[in-house]
Design a binder for these strands. Structure first.
Lengths: 123, 123
DNA sequence: CAATTAAGTTACAAAAATCAACCAGTATAC
DNA sequence: GTATACTGGTTGATTTTTGTAACTTAATTG
């Protein structure tokens, strides 16, 4: 899975080269986009409206939020529902499939919450 | 942790707004860079040399690999050792701290390996 | 009447990622 | 002997992503 190396004569070859994107890379391309993880995470307790997400993610622009939500919707991790209020509001909800990513996100949360002091610089 | 919302009159406010980067975002800024997860993952079984990593990650340019490794080294997830061979070779090894991220990466691997067919499009 | 809310979009600027070529010095295949 | 591959990167140009701030339309609040 991780790719094995071998030396044939003086030539080095990769035996199990990551068949293009390896599982880690493949997952990261879906969940690793900027703000993607946070968005999904903030939807874990139930539907949230666009501007509320925007408020909760303090730091992300509406543009990014809109783009990421569009992607998440396309990929079936999130659903978008227009509510007939005045003015109309839009609710985003995590799908069953989207929820399967929560376990991994929770593992990330645990890791991040236990970072040593000196790592907090990179926030 | 995920940020709570409340409506005061007609005004909506966020009670526990993500204190700037929430744990998910904080973690993603360390592990979520492109190729970062893969690099760490490929180091899980022992030290690997620069060009071998490059071969294993098929798709990432040397520039990206060099940059990501530099970052990982700065942040203490990886060590860099120059071997006095001819020509000199450089070995990268995951640190004890770096290894703490492997649990999370493994969770991602599991998730990615169980993606439904239609998700494979995004690879 | 002026301000605020809803959920975005637009145009532009800045930052990050990708690509291909190149460097040096050594060893190997032909 | 010469062309090639190997080592671990660096360089510069280009493309893609992100970020910023302003704007939209229609309705409500004070």
């Amino acid at each position: 899975m991780a790719g094995r190396l071998e030396t044939v004569g003086k030539r080095r070859i990769v035996l199990e080269a990551c068949t293009e994107p390896c599982p880690i890379e493949r997952g990261m391309r879906i969940l690793g986009g900027k703000w993607t993880g946070s968005l999904l995470w903030h939807l874990k307790d139930g539907p949230v409206r666009f501007n509320d997400l925007s408020r909760m993610l303090g730091g992300a622009s509406k543009k990014m939020i809109a783009e990421r939500l569009k992607q998440l919707e396309e990929r079936g991790l999130v659903t978008r529902t227009v509510l007939q209020t005045a003015p109309v509001s839009v609710e985003y909800e995590i799908t069953e499939f989207g929820a399967t990513a929560l376990k991994f996100l929770d593992e990330l949360r645990i890791w991040s919450e236990n970072l040593p002091q000196e790592q907090l610089v990179y926030s």
